[in-house]
């Protein structure tokens, strides 16, 4: 049986120890789309960045907090959609947060490149955030081909982020 669409969701404790599991689980789930090794690594890296943000920034290391992840694959469109959601502190200025090298934790040797990596390693990045409520990071990656169409979508989404 070859399903065109498939999805899974999971709730993880917001612990850095879960990052490795999260990125490996998402990567494994995408395998039916036959991604290249580079594409698999891109997905793993982007997921790792999103989960790190939840642990370090959204919850600031607090205990008993959760991350909700949903992954959807569409074999007809060769598309992977990943949502990483927290109920943490939220981001006051999303546009600022998306700037390369911007970090609120420079004293902890943070590079400020998490969102830049997510944006570079996926085709579309969208960040919805509300202070005191939480953040949802949505990433889409097209596995082989479809890059032109995606670049157009990505441009639109970038504008939408900036307007927020």
């Amino acid at each position: 049986m070859n399903c065109a669409e498939n999805m899974f969701s999971m709730r993880l404790s917001a612990l850095s120890e879960n990052e490795s599991f999260a990125r490996s689980a998402v990567a494994a789930f995408c395998l039916p789309l036959d991604p290249t090794l580079e594409e698999i690594n891109d997905i793993k890296t982007a997921v790792s960045e999103a989960v790190t943000n939840c642990v370090v920034h959204a919850y600031n290391g607090a205990k008993d907090k959760y991350i909700d992840m949903t992954v959807h694959i569409d074999a007809r469109l060769n598309k992977v959609s990943i949502s990483v959601k927290d109920e943490g502190c939220g981001i006051p200025d999303v546009k600022k947060a998306l700037e390369p090298f911007f970090t609120t934790k420079a004293d902890e040797e943070r590079s400020g490149m998490g969102f830049t990596i997510m944006r570079t390693f996926t085709d579309c990045l969208q960040v919805k955030s509300e202070e005191g409520k939480g953040t949802e990071v949505s990433m889409t990656k097209f596995i082989r081909g479809a890059s032109d169409a995606c670049a157009r979508r990505n441009a639109g989404i970038d504008r939408a982020c900036e307007e927020r």
């Binding site: 790190t52 040797e109 943070r110 590079s111 490149m113 990596i117």
Partner: peptide, 13 residues
């Protein structure tokens, strides 16, 4: 085999 931006921060430090 794998490093993310946290590793970058460590290297830069």
């Amino acid at each position: 085999p794998f490093m993310d931006s946290t590793g970058i921060g460590m290297l830069l430090g």
